[in-house]
Design a protein around this nucleic acid. Sequence first.
RNA 1: GCGCCCGUAGCUCAGUGGAUAGAGCGCCUGACUACGAAUCAGGAGGUCUGAGGUUCAAAUCCUCACGGGCGCACCA
Length: 554
Amino acid sequence: MISRLDEARQAIRQRIIEKLHDLGWPTLDELVQVEVPTEKGRGDLTTSFALKAARRVKMPPRELLGHMDAIWSDLPCVAGTEVAGPGFLNFTLSTAWMAEVIPDILRHPQTYGNTAVGQGKRVLLEYVSANPTGPMVIVSGRAAAVGDTLARVMSAAGYQVWREFYVNDAGGQIARLGQALALRLRELEGEDVESTWPENVYPGAYVKELALMYRAEHPEVLAQSLAEDEYPALGAWAAERIRQGHETTLKHFRVTFDRWFSERALRESGAPEAVIQRLKDRGYLVEREGAWWFTATRFGDDKDRVMVKSDGSLTYFVPDAAYHADKFDRGFDYVIDLLGPDHHGYVNRIRAVVEALGYPSDRLEVLIIQLVRVMRDGELVRMSKRGGTFVALEDLIEEAGIDPARFFLLERAPETPMDFDLNLAKLKGPDNPVYYVQYVGARIHSVLRQWRQMGAPAVPVDVTLLQEPEERQLIILLARFPEVLVRVAEERAPQHLVKFMTELAGAFHAFYRQHRILDQAPKLRQARLALAEAVLAVNTRGLELMGIEQPQEM
RNA sequence: GCGCCCGUAGCUCAGUGGAUAGAGCGCCUGACUACGAAUCAGGAGGUCUGAGGUUCAAAUCCUCACGGGCGCACCA
């Protein structure tokens, strides 16, 4: 049982199944699904089991439904039924019965919506994992918002969530970062480096800032004497500074991690070599053209992958494999990777190596976070890391604000490319959907303030007085909240929460425009106050799960 | 060329094999002597890219075509 709505659903389903058994059809149970209809005006719950079962029972759907007529009379949650269309059965739930959700919420406002569907399963969520070679771009922000909200919602759904950021602080790119730093240090000593800037070395302006920091820290180092073999160490120094910047930016964005997993530490532990040995032992590593290849094609990948290059060094893929081995060795039930759009060729490879190492690859889930294009004044804002001109996550947060940025980045299905409309996000006005949702809380807080000033005595709450259509709509939505969270958690789909919050806000604004709360007879006033407080609780909780603030005044 | 993702209203996008395909923005018409108008009520706007197929039922599943994005190194 995950909610009051679910209780009604289960009761109805059980009743239908019992009746089918009575009629002599004991094998149709799985066809009986009671669902929330996709559109309004089709009842509060609906089932199409008669359509699904028609063929097997050799009876037209509506005739089958005729047998279901009298079986609802003693179910307190059902107020009415209706047969519609070719054979749908729609249920109207008892408003008074559903309204009990209000005291349920008010008893535990901070935890309403929590469920145990995750059964305490341990989940490792890896997200962002931006390279520490430059500022984070927007797609990292999307991964941050999605990963963080998934972590929050999955925790609410009863999973034990561990959040991790994998830091690629080793390898060739770090050496190149070190080279860039060395060049900028030489520039500080008066050398012209621009005209001879090498290919593949980050020219970004942020390296100049790093050079200034480095010189302040190490005034004794003479840049001209820096040799090539010192680039990795320089790069590591720079990478750690950049990583700290990422951490600061993400924290500001309300995104935190339980662990920053260092690739360098992983390499130093010898884990990559251990993976090589394990694959050799299992016979999945073959020597060809002087290199060692992982036979990924045996596990469904397009081609085999080099792991040990002919010069004896390891490809980047080996530490990644070792990292995943480490994840599985830590005993997680689910290993979820949120990867950037440039990684989809990589998914089969990592899945292959996980399987080759003998881990249950069905516990590995890879979610590709798709590209974000930023639009300003209807024009595409170009991002180019190479040229050093791009929209950094920091700039986006600065320009749009944390709340709108998170809201917009969560609004779309993560695996589809999206456009981020900067103009809309920046709007401080009525057209901005973030404020639409936040305004709900501000209005209710305002009513509650005035209620306290009235000093009117509280009377016992009787939620059965809430019979207006707008009140009913709110009650049904409040009852749906726990299931929304379950769906977000299980489908790894935060956009459903955003949609729900927008719907709840719409229902509240409609109610608020139509009906008054405070100038009512004491009993109705008390009931509406309870309703408003319940809406506030769910609104606040939902926003919190999205990492968005609920201002008391706007 | 191969692989992955996508194609739904003017724009940006939801959509769980079900009923008359939804929302926001934009456009049009109305509503404060009012607990907050950052709001509400209503309207116009669709061959769900196309063609086949599976199904009682397809935007949804399958095949093909077309269009778009991204990826396809002994780089990371």
